[in-house]
Design a protein around this nucleic acid. Structure first.
Length: 579
DNA sequence: GCCGTTTTCGGCCCGACTGTTTTCAGTCG
């Protein structure tokens, strides 16, 4: 079963938002936010905890523990229901618009009775916001821009949300008698950064039992269509899921077809036509006789077209077919290749778990090395100091060696200031094993200044990795406007790696940027940026994006043995060219 | 509402930026 933590997290976060919208105590809202975050990233399923167990989660006290227990028992939380009755759900949706917070959302609702994004757009076009206190022309512009950003993300969901649902359904359907094969296909299998709808494929002689089970799964809000070959539902969270059942011997052709992409399928079908064949979801057939040739596995289908099996993450019609024909498909990096995580946090700054817990979780995942990179002092809210960093280093050195197979690196995530300088003087930086450097503020400096800023950071001899290089937040904040080619060139020249941040809301760099950067000879680091042990699992999404960027293990520094990695970390050493 | 080598009350991640004001509220990280 899916953990109930996410649903409890969402509920507590909603309550926190509603407290703010209704002008309640900001500290109380903050308390609920912190509890929501802690529960969402707690390792154990809250459904299995009693009040005492819940209170062991940091930032969960008596009041919230009791509310959660009540909710898990009855399916409702009265405090939330009360405040929901006062504020329409749409008002909270307004807060999803960047630059629109709880106060402005409340003003819009109270003064203009606006409680949805379309109503807000109408009001904007009718210039009804002009008279509101605190709303000027720039506010209008920012709101319009924010709505555009949200629209661009459309109804797509982050990949981890889709993955959780898909894996749950695959597990359920796989357990049914008669299931020969079951898996997810579509953009999820291709590891796109966001997912529009989830495609599940089953191979079975009879489809009815699967269709019946599918529509009655918990979480199904609406059955959009139900047939013998295809059934579609919408979940309570609004995600559409299509289930297709194919005959057992059509499994391979079905997976190939439903995995896509559309452009890749057009390319492969053209090749079939060229060979006087016809490719469909049921198999590869002789065009004239209609006689089936192959259909059981993807490998067979590709082989009959003269191609090696093409990894799903490459199936975007970006040259994978031509590369396959030439026998030049890259040997893609896999999750198993990753030996270490080079960007992680603890509760010394904004992480949720103590150093010891993060390290233990990393060791359990079988990592061979692990870097702790808490925030640096220039991010004022994190309250980092020299003393804290040094004390942490001492603790890291003590812990190092306790996990026999995993070495620890002590690092930091520096802030790249407006001029490209970072938090600490060089001498202090030299004490770290590894330095990630990231942009956390001044996002709108202008293209030239931003480019110079990143290039300057690369040129710092102590900076090893540029963290979340564009700083985009998917669906919320566009990437920095800078000359990426200049930055990529600077990384290659200085021996600075670019991060592929695996957090599902970031996935930064994106696949297209990776493809571009690789041409400069840049090296990459696939990191989780974990703020809790559970986040270490995000690695798979980072690896997915790396694969979509055609990266091999050699391109990714945290697949390397530690000795080679250490050489790379001494910038100017020869590691970047040797292998 | 949570929390405690400043403890059971009184703090709570702090500072900067933006856009609106004309001294500051709201938003963000």
């Amino acid at each position: 079963m899916v953990r109930r933590n996410e649903e409890v997290e969402a509920l507590l976060q909603e309550y926190a938002d509603l407290v703010l919208i209704t002008g309640g105590d900001a500290f109380k809202a903050r308390a609920y936010e912190k509890a929501a975050r802690a529960i969402g990233s707690h390792h154990a399923d809250v459904a299995g905890l009693d009040a005492e167990g819940l209170r062991e989660i940091p930032n969960v006290g008596r009041s919230i523990a009791d509310k959660v227990i009540g909710y898990l028992r009855t399916g409702s939380m009265p405090a939330v229901e009360d405040v929901r009755a006062k504020v329409p759900a749409g008002v909270r949706q307004l807060m999803a618009i960047p630059t629109l917070g709880p106060r402005k959302a409340m003003v819009l609702y109270q003064d203009l009775h606006i409680s949805s994004v379309p109503e807000l757009l109408d009001a904007l076009h009718e210039e009804r916001l002009r008279d509101l206190k605190g709303f000027g022309p720039k506010t209008e512009e920012n709101i319009l821009h924010g709505i555009d950003l949200m629209r661009a993300a459309g109804d797509r969901v982050p990949i981890n949300a889709a993955m959780d649902v898909a894996e749950e359904i695959v597990a359920e359907l796989s357990a049914l008698p008669g299931c020969e094969n079951c898996g997810y296909a579509g953009s999820l299998r291709r590891m796109r950064e966001t997912i529009g709808d989830v495609d599940i494929l089953v191979a079975a002689a009879r489809s009815a039992p699967f269709m019946d089970a599918f529509v009655t799964l918990p979480g199904t809000a609406e059955v959009i269509a139900q047939g013998t070959k295809k059934t579609s539902v919408r979940t309570t969270k609004g995600l559409q899921i299509d289930l297709r059942v194919v005959p057992p011997d059509s499994w391979g052709a079905g997976m190939q077809y439903f995995t896509g992409s559309k452009a890749h399928n057009i390319r492969t079908r053209e090749m079939a036509v060229h060979h006087k064949l016809k490719l469909s979801e049921y198999g590869l057939f002789h065009a004239k006789s209609g006689k089936k040739i192959v259909s059981q596995t993807e490998e067979e289908v590709y082989a009959r077209l003269g191609l090696p099996w093409i990894p799903p993450t490459l199936r975007e019609d970006r040259g994978e077919v031509a590369a396959g024909l030439r026998g030049e498909l890259p040997d893609l990096v896999t999750e198993a290749d990753i030996r270490g995580d080079l960007h992680t946090h603890t509760d010394l700054t904004d992480g949720l778990a103590p150093l010891e817990e993060m390290v233990a979780a990393a060791a359990r995942r079988g990592l061979r090395y692990y870097a702790i990179t808490d925030h640096a002092p220039d991010m004022a809210m994190q309250r980092m100091t020299d003393e804290k960093a040094l004390a942490q280093r001492e603790r890291v050195r003590e812990l190092d060696g306790r996990h026999r197979k995993m070495r620890l690196l002590h690092g930091t995530e520096l802030n790249i200031g407006p001029d490209g300088a970072v938090d600490w003087p060089q001498e202090f930086l030299r004490g770290f094993d590894i330095c990630v450097a990231s942009v956390h503020d001044h996002f709108r400096q202008g293209r030239d200044a931003l480019t110079r800023r990143l290039v300057t950071a690369c040129e710092n001899p102590e900076v090893n990795i540029i963290g979340h290089p564009t700083t985009r937040i998917i669906g919320r904040r566009p990437g920095l406007d800078m000359d990426l080619d200049a930055v990529f060139a600077a990384c290659a020249r200085t021996g600075t790696a670019l991060e592929i941040n695996a957090h599902p809301d970031r996935l930064d760099l994106s696949d297209e940027h990776i493809l571009r950067a690789k041409r400069y000879g840049v090296k990459f680091a696939v990191d989780t940026d974990a703020h809790a042990p559970l986040h270490l699992e995000y690695l798979r999404y980072g690896v997915g994006i790396a694969q979509r960027g055609w990266l091999t293990a050699d391109d990714v520094i945290n697949t390397w043995p530690l000795t080679r990695l250490r050489r790379f970390l001494r910038k100017g050493g020869s590691a970047a060219t040797s292998s």
